[in-house]
């Protein structure tokens, strides 16, 4: 049995230690926000946070989570009360098919928690690993900029690891 903490809740799952975290999140815990895109760490659709760092969960063995804090897009808000990035993505209609969006929001969250008001270049470099096949990148960037302007996700006093 493997114990892992996701969005503050502790779970015990009976899987092989090398199973990718993404499979555990989706198949065992029914957290279907993170998506299987390429399975090769090239698209970012499966991005989740582990100890505040964005990782490709399709290439992340579940046994690596021991003692670490996993966060997924489900932990950022609810349909009734979306988190700041979720609300900004809705307001700016940054979603076309939506497949990449959970990964986009999660990766952006990591940056905005660490840097209160990132520059345009910082945002673009940080978001570089995540792809959107529909091509809504401009709206995605716009939504991120809107939250960056408020600085509300920034965790004061936390320097956080470089990404």
């Amino acid at each position: 049995m493997i114990e892992l903490t996701v969005n503050g809740a502790t779970h015990r799952v009976d899987v092989d230690p090398a199973t990718p975290l993404l499979y555990v999140l989706r198949n065992e815990l029914a957290l279907n926000g993170a998506k299987f895109g390429c399975g090769m760490g090239q698209c970012g659709a499966c991005t989740v946070l582990v100890d505040d760092r964005p990782v490709f969960s399709c290439l992340y063995p579940v046994s690596s989570t021991a003692g670490r804090r996993v966060r997924t897009v489900e932990g950022f808000g609810t349909p009734e009360k979306p988190g700041p990035l979720q609300q900004a993505f809705i307001d700016r209609q940054a979603v076309q098919c939506g497949y990449c969006i959970a990964g986009m929001i999660v990766r952006a969250q990591a940056l905005l928690e660490r840097v209160a008001h990132p520059t345009e270049q910082q945002i673009r470099e940080h978001m570089n690993p995540n792809l959107c096949r529909c091509g809504t990148h401009m709206r995605i960037l716009d939504a991120i900029r809107a939250v960056a302007a408020t600085g509300e996700l920034h965790r004061a006093g936390e320097k956080g690891p470089a990404s």
Binding site: Q42, F56, Y60, P61, S64
Partner: peptide, 10 residues
């Protein structure tokens, strides 16, 4: 291209 695994593996 290869993804970095510094944050994925112990």
């Amino acid at each position: 291209y290869m993804p970095a695994f510094a944050d994925n593996l112990t």
